[in-house]
Design a protein around this nucleic acid. Sequence first.
DNA 1: TAGATTGTTAATCGATTAACAATC
DNA 2: TAGATTGTTAATCGATTAACAATC
Lengths: 206, 206
Amino acid sequence: MKTMKISEAVVRRLPVYLRFLNELSKKNVQTVSSQDLGQKLDLNPAQIRKDLAYFGEFGKKGIGYDVDYLIEKIRQILKLDKIIPVALVGAGNLGRALCNYNAYLKDNMKIIAVFDSHGSKIGDTINNLKVKPTGEMKAIIQEQKVRIGIITVPAAEAQHVANQFVEAGVEAILNFAPMIIKVPAEVRVHHADFTTELQSLAYYLD
Amino acid sequence: MKTMKISEAVVRRLPVYLRFLNELSKKNVQTVSSQDLGQKLDLNPAQIRKDLAYFGEFGKKGIGYDVDYLIEKIRQILKLDKIIPVALVGAGNLGRALCNYNAYLKDNMKIIAVFDSHGSKIGDTINNLKVKPTGEMKAIIQEQKVRIGIITVPAAEAQHVANQFVEAGVEAILNFAPMIIKVPAEVRVHHADFTTELQSLAYYLD
DNA sequence: TAGATTGTTAATCGATTAACAATC
DNA sequence: TAGATTGTTAATCGATTAACAATC
């Protein structure tokens, strides 16, 4: 099963499971069934079992899933069992907001460098990180083995930043700019676009 | 066709079309084909034609789509042809960042009120908006006919804010807190969760 | 007219859900 | 043992893509 291709929909649900399991763990809940999970997360229990079964047999028939064991397994699947260094470009309001999530990301992902191309921002300190000029991006990314890049610059600069990330060897990009960026197929891009999100929400108004 | 139920996937693509069409319009491009659109947006042309055809016959055979006409139509479909008042709760970094997008949202959606429950934030001015105490939420939301609510408070407070939104009569919620919130079925909720986004991205690292 | 491109039907593909034997 | 719940197969459902007649 290890070689089977996993659908994007499945991968997107794993972090949702993980978050809820973490809450259960904090409350010292030992065991959870797909039934329970489905109820809380508004998902079909069969779907949850199937999602997990792609990666192994994590449950016990008649019992359910051990919460802490399942957390460990999902963290492994998502590669969150070791620190992933992240860099962010664009020290505007959104960039600052995301840097301050650093604490929230716990021990797995860490924004370890922040860049901006505008002199006025360079040298600022955000959450203990000094904003550096984009000219230093490549060197720092390679030196610190940054694997994920976050783009929070204006739309017009997004593609340029993406190019720099790719050249520096970043493996995946989370793009907050309202602009589709083109990268080589081996680099994974996710879009997190606040405006499209809001606009599609408007559709559902009466 | 007006009564047919449109899938969520279709609705999520419409704002993406809209954004690209706006760029074309700015460049004075008059006409675009599904071929062109598909190329730029990494989508199948047949899918684009089908998406649009759910709502009417907007194109001309042999020619393509008139850019400005299509913009107008998509704006109507998404109900962006009139101003939609939006309120935001949580004047932290993320909330501030989103308020500053106000300009970007052009004339269709407008964050017209910002609330926070912490005394230290109340009275601050963000992008010409004064942060008000959450106690005033209901009155202001009803008075100003706010239709969409944005939640940018910590996870622990998200459900409480959602309840207040629902009670005040908000029709849809965009939730940035990393927490699933429960609302009555008639209220639409979208989750825009930065951490799950980043975590699913990690899966694709080698 | 010839070339291009839509709108739409039919075919394909993939994801979700139901059902149930296995088993704790 | 009886009850509960998994892992997995089969059935269903829905979304994407291909193909093409209509027509600008």
